[in-house]
Amino acid sequence: MKKNRTLENAIAAIPSGAVIMVGGFGNPGTPFSLISELVRQGQTDLTVIKNDANEAGHGISRLIEKRQVRKLITTHIGLNKLAIDRMNQGAIDVEFHPQGILAEKIRTAGAGSFGFLTDIGIDSEITRPEDLVDWKGTAYKVEMALSADFALIHAAQADWLGNLVYRGSAINFSPLMAMAANHVVVETPDLGAPGRFKPEHVHTPGAFVDSVVPLESLTSDYGILEHHVRR
C-alpha cells in the first residue's frame, strides 16, 4: 500500500494537545518542512520531544516562538538563547534528560518495553527518592519508557512502503522515534519505488512508518549554516 501523503494532509492529522517526537540533532535530521507546515496550521498546546531546540528562527524554535509548545522534553538547548529565555520566563515548561537516557527511554518504548534501570544521574538533582529501587543490595534509578502520539522524521531516501535511509549524522534520534510513536510522518526529498534499496541497507523498516511526504526541493534550512563554518 502506498503511504504517500501531501504535506498538508499528513500534518492535518495532528490535533492540538498532541505529544510529538521530532528527529534531528541540531540541523541534520530536523524535518524542517513538516515543522513549517505545523507552524502554518497552528496546532497548539503541543508537547515536543527533541534532542535540542534548534537555533532561534529555525526548526522547532519557530513552534516555541509562535507559542504552540506547552512543554519541551529535551537534553540540551544551549545553542538557542531564545528558548532559554522562554524557559526562564516560565513561558514554556522544559524537562531535561541526559541525552543517552532520553534516547534509551524512546528506544525502550519503541521496543514495546516499559522501562529500564540505570545509574546515570543517580547522585544528581535529576533523581528523586521515589525513582530509586533496591535490587539485591544495589540502588538503581528507574527510567520509564517514553512514547508519543506522532513522530516527525526526515529521511534522505524512502520508498512508498515507508522503508527509510538516513544520511550522515542525521540518523541520531530518528530510527528510535520512528519505533516509539503511534503515527510516524516522514518527509524525504528522494521518494522512489520499492526495490530501490538493498534490503540489508534499510535503516528503518516500513512497518514503523504511516505517512511519507515527498519534498520537491530542500529549503535553505537544510543547507550549510554560515555561522557554523570555521574560517
Binding site: 540533532f25 541534520p28 541525552q99 534509551e104 550522515g168 541520531n172 550549510i224 557554523h228 570555521r230
Partner: peptide, 27 residues
C-alpha cells in the same frame, strides 16, 4: 556536508574507517 556536524554544530568530515550510528548506540 550540511548533514554531518559535531555535537556543537560545526561541520566535520569523516576519517577512513569512520562509522555513523543512532543516539542509542552512541550512548
Amino acid at each position: 556536508d550540511p548533514f554531518l556536524i559535531d555535537a556543537a554544530g560545526a561541520y566535520v568530515s569523516l576519517r577512513e574507517g569512520a562509522s555513523l550510528f543512532d543516539s542509542a548506540v552512541s550512548f
